[in-house]
Design a protein around this nucleic acid. Structure first.
Lengths: 119, 119
DNA sequence: TGTTCATTTGAACAACTGTTCATATTTAAC
DNA sequence: GTTAAATATGAACAGTTGTTCAAATGAACA
């Protein structure tokens, strides 16, 4: 987005003031956007949804979403960086699970929205 | 993602069966992913966050996020298609607001996550 | 040590996304 | 009708993203 400003005369400055007053920190907002961005890919969301039910290894996930383990591993790395998933190693196998309940809550809400607003 | 399958011998078929059992419809999952994708852009999320507080017109939003009204209008069209925002026209001005409470709930949760997991 | 398997990582490439710019609408006021 | 203002839309372009492919870890076991 650029820094261009429209030359409207009907700007509602009072409303913008109220919006500014409750605006979260920019850092937090960017963090939230990053979480949403990661959940916004169908493949990753399928991974997340699977992990909401069971702890699974990379191979399980690759089979489940029908992708290469390399692709899944790349995605899991991103999800881990954003603290959406945790992992533990057991021998050669690495198991992944959701990091906390925030993710599940958001997925449930998004599914509700999608179901109610079906066109 | 391709259709490649890994040749693991330690697949946990029982776990995958349980995951499959509770899996939502593919259509719903794609809808949820689309919602997340739209929330995943910082500019759009800022728009959403502003609309969570006040009903605003395109010019207000353009000023607030520091973008052209054209750019904002493009984004609002996407948000409207996904039923995330509604609009009403009053003369030359079009006012936008959130469509329902789902969005606010997800944003609050994502902000919580971002705040708790700050590295 | 050498081998095998699960996973990870890096680079490159195709596909997608958001902005810009120019051009339409739509409505109100003259 | 004309003009002006707010918003919308289409095409094109730059930046980003996800996958693939090849190569590299890390761990068990003979």
């Amino acid at each position: 987005m650029s820094d261009e400003v429209c030359q409207c005369t009907v700007l509602h400055q009072d409303r913008l003031d109220r919006v500014q007053a409750v605006f979260p920190g920019l850092e937090d907002l960017l963090g939230a956007a990053e979480v949403f961005r990661l959940l916004g890919d169908p493949g990753r969301l399928r991974i997340i949804q699977a992990l909401a039910t069971e702890e699974l290894c990379v191979c399980d996930l690759a089979t489940f979403v029908g992708a290469s383990s390399s692709a899944v591993s790349h995605q899991l790395r991103l999800l881990k960086q954003a603290r959406l998933v945790r992992n533990r190693r057991e021998g050669k196998v690495v198991y992944y699970r959701l990091d906390d309940g925030h993710v599940t809550a958001m997925v449930v809400t998004a599914l509700d929205h999608a179901r109610e607003r079906k066109s």
